[in-house]
């Protein structure tokens, strides 16, 4: 299988001395739907900025479909479409012109540029806005415009930096469907997001980055298997005074009368319901307390902080 993106020992030190990337390595295979997750300031945007040629790297290498950015920049860029976090189009240009201009930058002749622009504006529900200035669009429409712009030259690799930030749930879901279809066409997608349910719903492989280092890079199933315990929130038909004692499970009542139950991965959820039934407790509905990936993400980042902190303390003691 072809590697869509290969990053080797990538480092970035900004002018103020801040080391944003500390030698990261990353491979994304062709056709993958890949999530790059990390807290604010972890190095996600710097990584994607270097891949998109918007940030100068300090050292290391980046290849897109085998084309090294240092040696074969034009061919590498032709494969790539970028949807940045912030709106970065000319607000005074018309929607259609923005897409046609972008296609022109990629050397696509006028007729094909216009055809592609129409295709993606229609697919993203913006065709009726084609003659409007971009500043007149709603926030959700502007996000879709940036996706259309990233696709207008038909790239094989698409990078989306927080594509659904500030978008309502309905639109987010429709964007998920659109991106899934794009991925099903064989195009590789790399996504960063703060909505971890988005990564869990869409992505097959996930890397977690924090403080300029990759903490984890594996497929979603293996990653979620690392989660040993899940907490379920049960909505009860009657309000209880105290949490029922469940053999082998941790349980507690929340302030609003919900019952939280901790279930280890090797134990069954059926047993919880059997015990509740025996105690005469009726459950009307149930949900997981947090998104599974979110739980894992928070745990890994916290572990990393603790490890970094203890290492720093040890170094401090030696000094």
């Amino acid at each position: 299988m072809t590697t869509a993106l290969a990053i080797r020992d990538l480092r970035k030190i900004y002018g103020n001395g801040f080391e944003a990337l500390k030698g990261i390595n990353l491979d994304v295979e062709e056709g993958d739907f890949f999530a790059l997750l990390g807290p604010n300031g972890a190095g996600k945007s710097t990584t994607l900025g270097i891949v998109s040629s918007l940030v100068n790297k300090t050292s290391g290498s980046v290849s897109i479909f085998g084309h090294d950015l240092d040696k074969d920049l034009v061919k590498a860029k032709l494969q790539l479409g970028v949807v940045p976090q912030e709106f970065n189009f000319n607000q005074f240009e018309k929607v259609f012109d923005i897409l046609v201009t972008q296609a022109g930058y990629y050397g696509i002749p006028a007729k094909a540029s216009k055809d592609n622009a129409e295709k993606y504006l229609r697919e993203l529900g913006l065709w009726d806005k084609k003659d409007q200035q971009a500043r007149m669009l709603s926030g959700g429409m502007k996000r879709r415009l940036m996706i259309a712009r990233a696709l207008v030259h038909e790239p094989r690799l698409i990078i989306l930096d927080e594509p659904t930030a500030g978008v309502d749930i309905e639109l987010r879901r429709s964007m998920w469907t659109f991106l899934t279809n794009v991925n099903n066409e064989g195009r590789t997608i790399i996504l960063t997001t703060h909505y971890l349910e988005e990564a869990e719903a869409l992505c097959r492989n996930i890397a977690i980055i924090d403080r300029g280092r990759i903490l984890e890079n594996t497929n979603k199933r293996d990653l979620l298997n690392k989660l040993n315990q899940e907490t379920f929130v049960l909505d009860l038909t009657c309000r209880l005074q105290e949490a029922p004692r469940l053999e082998g499970y941790g349980s507690r009542l929340t302030a609003d009368g919900m019952l939280e139950v901790d279930v280890d991965k090797q134990r069954s959820l059926n047993e919880v319901f059997q015990q509740l039934d025996q105690l005469g407790v009726k459950v009307s509905s149930m949900r997981t307390k947090t998104n599974r990936l979110e739980e894992l993400f928070i745990r890994m980042v916290n572990e990393d902080k603790n490890e970094t902190g203890s290492t720093a303390n040890a170094e401090g003691a030696q000094a």
Binding site: S52, L73, N88, Q102, G107, R149
Partner: peptide, 18 residues
Amino acid sequence: FGMKFQHSIEELLVAPVP
């Protein structure tokens, strides 16, 4: 400068324009 200010210069920088 307007392109820099609005960040729309990035449209050009990501594209294969020498």
